[in-house]
Design a protein around this nucleic acid. Structure first.
Length: 411
RNA sequence: GGGGAGAUUCCCGAGUGGUCAAAGGGGGCAGACUGUAAAUCUGUUGGCUUACGCCUUCGAAGGUUCAAAUCCUUCUCUCCCCA
């Protein structure tokens, strides 16, 4: 098998390929242009988006040409694949703004050079599409019977599928065709939920252009306990530091399940496969170090080494005991000293920190024994905290349970 | 166009006049056990309140009633069947 594909396989990226042998041969012959598309439907990329971009980096490093396609056009509609409900329709302005942010984040990670790695936007050919022409030239190649047999649509038949969503596959197929014509793109990569759309695109190109193209999908990464990867209760883990702080980002990886360590190291870092496997094999204290490594590596890739160092220092301060790390890196907020001087109820203090959303929740926390201020467990919800509680640095260390830490600083 | 079913707290889903902030499950949070893991067990899970209690919530708006998630009217949306 082609070396680049072999490398992807070794790292656990390969899920399905339309013709692995054929693709391997093509890649052996020389640089292959490939693309991955993503619809800018939110303000930031999240971890779930990243699998294809990691794969892209590996492939680009092996000499192939990568196209990052922004679905500025398709975002106006919504992809029904793998969804149970219709996507929220968002405004064109919002899509454009999202596109800019996505591209900035992608560029930060991939370093688009404009030649061997560049972006395009399907808005360029979809926005002003003529409906009649599209039906004549493209629509006639699609069999509704066939489309209905796809799992993605079949599921939605139960709950309802609007006509515009039903068209998504045609548009994505058309994208592939356009990229083939404009950039000589021969391969589309993506998450496995895109399989049906990718195959449809390949077929369209075969019919219209008589050319053979390829599709390659990656596993939809789930955590070992069956949850969607990169999701927490609060929502997705975003790349935007304003939405998910580097510290939270780091902690997400730091708290990954043992069984996921090796897999995630392989997919979300560039450490050599042998090292990933070795780290993943560790037990007890060792596996914790491996998680720390995983967290640092991924954080460094996304937010830079400085941020990764800071996050690590904060984590050590929060969990490693007293002087193990740098407390200044723990998430914090400033409270006026004068305000605290008047005395503040612990419940209000916890609400102020944002560790809990309401006083009721704060009360529950105290009652259940999860509220700690400066290593002192709060037993009474009526406890009043004042400046006398401040530590040497004039700060308060708040803990909600064992995992959530917050510092209150004073001016 | 005709007929039928439905919209419940984060999700699924019970609930057909007071005993409903609303069963059960999932998820979350906290505690125990640990390794900042998993599994397991326990508690908890609208807001304000020390508490009595008060306020907001059962698609939307009105109405009946001492009292409504539950009854009536109109509206919005979803699904199914027939044309």
């Amino acid at each position: 098998m082609n070396a680049a594909l072999e490398a992807l396989k070794e790292r656990g990226f390969l899920q399905q390929c339309t013709d692995l042998e054929g693709l391997s041969k093509l890649m052996d012959e020389g640089p292959v242009t490939f693309y991955e598309g993503c619809d800018p439907t939110g303000p930031s990329l999240h971890i779930g988006h990243m699998v294809p971009y990691f794969a892209m980096r590996h492939m680009h490093a092996a000499g192939h040409r990568a196209i990052v396609l922004m679905g500025g056009g398709t975002a106006r509609i919504g992809d029904p694949s793998g969804k149970t409900t219709m996507r929220q329709i968002i405004s064109y302005e919002e899509i454009d703004a999202n596109t800019k942010r996505f591209l900035a984040q992608i560029d930060n990670f991939l370093r688009l050079d404009g030649k061997t790695m560049f972006s395009d936007n399907n808005k360029n050919w979809l926005a002003d599409l003529n409906y009649i022409d599209f039906l004549r030239d493209i629509g006639r190649h699609f069999s509704v019977n066939r489309m209905l047999s796809f799992e993605a649509y079949r599921q939605r038949m139960e709950t309802g599928l609007s006509f515009i969503e039903f068209n998504y596959q045609l548009l994505q197929s058309y994208d592939f065709l356009q990229l083939y014509k404009r950039h000589g793109c021969r391969l589309q990569i993506g998450g496995d939920d895109q399989w049906g759309n990718i195959v449809a695109g390949i077929e369209l190109i075969r019919r219209v252009e008589g050319a053979e193209c390829f599709g390659l999908t990656f596993p939809l990464v789930m955590t070992s306990d069956g949850k969607k990867m990169g999701k927490t209760e609060k929502g997705a883990i975003f790349l935007d530091p304003a939405m998910t702080s580097p510290y939270e980002f780091f902690q997400y990886w730091r708290n990954v399940t043992d069984a996921d360590v090796e897999r995630f190291l392989l997919m979300f870092t560039f450490l050599p496969p042998a090292e990933c496997r070795e780290l993943g094999r560790a037990k007890d204290a060792g596996i914790n170090q491996a998680k720390e490594r995983l967290a640092w590596e991924v954080t460094a890739l996304i937010h830079g080494k400085d941020e990764a160092d800071k996050a690590l220092a904060a984590a050590k301060a929060a969990f490693g005991g007293a002087a193990a790390g740098d407390v200044s890196q723990i998430p914090s907020k400033i409270l006026a000293r004068a305000e605290l001087g008047k005395g503040m109820g612990v419940l209000d203090l916890f609400v102020y920190s944002g560790l809990v959303p309401s006083k009721s929740e704060a009360r529950r926390l105290v009652q259940q024994g999860g509220a700690v201020v400066n290593d002192r467990k709060i037993e009474d919800e009526k406890t009043v905290v004042d400046t006398g509680w401040l530590d040497a640095e004039g700060a308060l260390m708040l803990r909600a349970g064992k995992k959530r830490v917050f510092r209150i600083l004073t001016d």
